[in-house]
């Protein structure tokens, strides 16, 4: 069992390394992509400077906390889109019968399918995340917590995407749902939770878990709370397991399915 896990990790690292090498073939484009992503994220600071000139406290956040929120949002987005870029195209992979290649390999189909490509601009997001942490105030404890939440958050984002993408095993048009959920997660992630109310707030702690990915980390980094940290880790584990479960269920259907959808 341990050997299987070790071999899987080895091949995953190799996949990501090779994919990165492919992106680095054109060095100028590679570096421009990263730099522009950092500048892109930074441009939104103007919006917050204006907003904080109107009010000292927006949705329960001061400007430092918004900076931290941006840091967490960038880091989680960066990690998930760098390492698991293909998870965000999983619907397309399923619909076009591109899983066959991975089915004849003696490795985990889901992991293989989502780690065959990387997004260079996501490196810019990761760097920007740590720049924001630096501005917020860095300490060893902050750094470790920030990184922990970054990993948890990116796994949650990826898992949610996989879960919704797996719907493609049953319904062909479900890529629209995946797209909408992702847009919601990305866009809401940089706004303080205090501005949302009622049903939206419930959604943010359930199907669009921006609450767990972004708001809990800001709370914990502002004032350490072991319970919230554990909840965050627990949710991550549960969602990762759930994503494997649902994907594998779909995969069984894919193999035994009698539906011929562009599968020749």
């Amino acid at each position: 069992m341990l050997m299987v896990v070790k071999n899987q990790i080895r091949i995953t690292i190799l996949s990501i390394k090779y994919a990165l090498m492919r992106e680095m073939l054109n060095k100028t484009t590679f570096i421009t992509n990263i730099v522009f992503m950092i500048l892109n994220n930074a441009s939104f600071l103007i919006q917050w400077i204006v907003l904080f000139s109107l009010k000292k406290n927006i949705g329960g956040y001061n400007i430092k906390q918004v900076i931290l929120l941006w840091g967490i949002a960038s880091l989680t987005y960066g990690l998930s889109h760098f390492f698991f870029k293909k998870a965000f195209d999983l619907s397309e992979t399923i619909n076009n019968g591109k899983l066959d290649v991975f089915l004849v390999q003696p490795k985990n189909v889901l992991i293989q399918a989502i780690t065959t490509d990387v997004e260079p601009s996501a490196i810019g997001d990761m760097i920007y995340g740590y720049i924001m942490l630096f501005i917020y105030g860095i300490s060893l404890k902050n750094f470790l917590l920030f990184t922990l939440f970054g990993i948890c958050g990116s796994l949650i984002i990826t898992s949610i995407t996989i879960i919704f993408s797996s719907l493609s095993f049953w319904f062909q048009k479900s890529d629209l749902i995946v797209d909408t959920v992702n847009r919601l997660m990305v866009n809401i992630a940089t706004y303080p939770d205090g501005i949302f109310k009622g049903l939206t707030k419930i959604l943010l702690y359930t199907i669009i878990p921006v609450g767990i990915v972004n708001y809990i980390p800001v709370k914990v980094l502002t004032e350490f709370n072991i319970y919230l940290t554990l909840i965050s880790i627990l949710v991550t584990i549960l969602l990762v397991l759930l994503s494997f479960l649902i994907f594998n269920k779909g995969l069984k259907r894919y193999s035994s399915s009698n539906l011929m959808i562009a599968r020749t």
Partner: peptide, 19 residues
């Protein structure tokens, strides 16, 4: 095969896939 890699690197990759 990974098209940006050499056959040699590709073979190493497949070696790893099959442990």
């Amino acid at each position: 095969l990974w098209t940006h890699l050499t056959p040699y690197d590709n073979f190493k990759f497949f070696g790893a896939i099959y442990d």
